[in-house]
Design a protein around this nucleic acid. Structure first.
Lengths: 223, 223
DNA sequence: AGCATATTAGAACGATCGTGCTATTTATTC
DNA sequence: GAATAAATAGCACGATCGTTCTAATATGCT
C-alpha cells in the first residue's frame, strides 16, 4: 500500500481531501442527472454549504472538476461492477457475472441518473477535448474488459472459438446501454430482462456441442 | 393535400414560416451537437443574423423552441429513414430496409452530432416535463414501428412466429444506438457493420426451416 | 506556544442566459 | 395609397455562469 500525501500517518484523510470527496460524491450524483456540463460550481457549493470560490479553488477550473468527477465515477463503477465480477471463476461464469453486475448496477441506480458513463459519453461525444478523450479511453477500457472475458471463456472451452470477442463485446455493451436507456426514459425495468435474455440467447448459440448436450446452457441458475 | 394557413395560395411559404424553418434547420443541427438544453436563443440568432428578441418571439419560450426542434427532427428522421424503408416489400425485406436505412442515417450524419434522438433522449431522460414526455412518446413510436415490422415478417412467414416482436425490436434498437454511440465517441465506423452482423445473425436464427434450406437467409444481397 | 502552510470565505468582474416591453419595419387588405 | 396586421429589431432586466483576487481561518510542524 502506497502512502499518499493526502493521507496522514494514522490513515485519516486530510481536510482538503475530505471535502474533495464530499464534493465529488455530490458531483457524480448530479452529473448523472444534469450532465457533466450542467454541473455548476455555485450549485455544488450551495448544496454543500461551501463558498463558490473555495470549491473552485479545490480544482482550479471547471474542466478539472469534471475530470475529477469522471475519475470518481470510475472508482465507484469499478467497485460496483468489475471488482465483484472478478471474484467469479474465470471463463463463462465471470462473463455472466460481469453482465449480471452491470445490469444490477444500472437497475439499482448506483448513480441517480442511471449509468454515469452512458450519459457522459453521449453528452461529450461531439465535444473534442480532454473530457471526451478521457471518456473514450475509459469506455474502450471497459469494452476491452468485456472482450477479454469473452476470450477467456473461449480459452476455457466454455464458448466456441470461432466468435470474435470484440464483436460480442460490442453486442453485449449495446444491450447494456439499451437497457439503461429504456429504463431511464420509459421506466421500463423489464428492459433488463430483455437484455439478459438477448445475451443468454446469443451465448447459448456459442456454447460448444459437448456442453450443450449436457445442460443446454452453462449456468444452471439461469432459466 | 390540406392547405395550411402558413402556405399562401401559390404554394410559397409565408415570411414567418420561412424563417421558422431556417431557425429549426439550424436548431436541429446545433442540438444534435450541443444538446437541446445547450441551444441558446442568442446563439441561434447571431448565426442567422436575426435579433434575439425576434427569434424568441417566433416561439414564445425556449421550451417551445425545443419542442418545435424535436418535431422538425422527427420530420427529417421520417424522411430519411422510415419513408424510404416503407417502399420495400412488406415482411423481412422491409425490416431489413429499416435497419439499413437507420444505420445509413447514422453513418451519413444526417444530423451533425449523430442520431438526434439518441442524444436528446439521453439528455432528457432524467428531466421530467413536456420535452421528456414528447421524446419518450417518439421513441416508443419508433420501437413500435420496429416491432410491427417484425410481426409483419412473421405473418408473411419470413420469420418464425415464436419470437417476441417487442424483444426483437429492443435488441435491434439497442444495436442501432450502440453503433451510433461507438461511431460518435470513437469514430469507429466498423460499428455499423458490427450492428448489421449482429442483426443478421439474430434474424438468421429465426428464419423458418423451409427458407433456410433454400438460401440460408432471405436477402441474397447480404453476404 | 508560535510559525508556516493549506484551506475556505467574500466580493467583484465580464459574459451569457431567458425573457419582457416598446418601437420599427414589412406584408396584406381595403 | 392608407389602414391594419404580422414579423422583426432594440434595449434593458435580473439571474447565473466561470473565474480572479484578497482576506480570513483552520491545520500541521517544530
Amino acid at each position: 500500500m502506497v502512502l499518499e500525501k493526502s493521507v496522514s500517518a494514522d490513515g485519516r484523510l486530510e481536510r482538503g481531501e475530505r471535502t474533495r470527496r464530499q464534493i465529488l460524491d455530490l458531483a457524480v450524483d448530479l452529473a448523472s442527472v444534469q450532465g457533466l456540463e450542467g454541473l455548476s460550481i455555485g450549485g455544488l457549493a450551495s448544496k454543500l454549504s461551501l463558498s463558490k470560490s473555495g470549491l473552485f479553488a479545490s480544482f482550479g477550473s471547471k474542466e478539472e472538476l469534471q475530470l475529477a468527477t469522471i475519475e470518481h465515477a470510475r472508482q465507484i463503477f469499478i467497485d460496483a461492477v468489475v471488482r465483484k465480477a472478478m471474484m467469479a471463476p474465470r471463463g463463462l461464469p465471470r462473463l455472466w457475472a460481469l453482465c449480471d453486475s452491470w445490469l444490477e448496477y444500472a437497475g439499482r441506480k448506483v448513480f441517480r441518473g442511471g449509468c454515469f458513463f452512458a450519459a457522459a459519453s453521449a453528452e461529450f461525444d461531439s465535444h473534442p477535448g480532454r473530457i471526451r478523450d478521457r471518456l473514450a479511453a475509459l469506455m474502450e477500457e471497459w469494452l476491452t474488459t468485456l472482450a477479454v472475458a469473452v476470450r477467456k471463456a473461449q480459452e476455457a472451452g466454455h464458448l466456441r472459438a470461432d466468435a470474435d470477442p470484440a464483436q460480442l463485446a460490442f453486442e453485449i455493451h449495446s444491450l447494456f446501454f439499451g437497457a439503461n436507456w429504456a429504463y431511464q426514459l420509459h421506466g421500463d425495468s423489464k428492459a433488463f430482462d430483455r437484455a439478459r435474455e438477448a445475451i443468454r440467447h446469443r451465448l447459448a448459440a456459442l456454447t460448444p456441442e459437448v456442453t450443450r448436450k449436457v445442460g443446454g446452457r452453462a449456468r444452471s441458475s439461469r432459466s
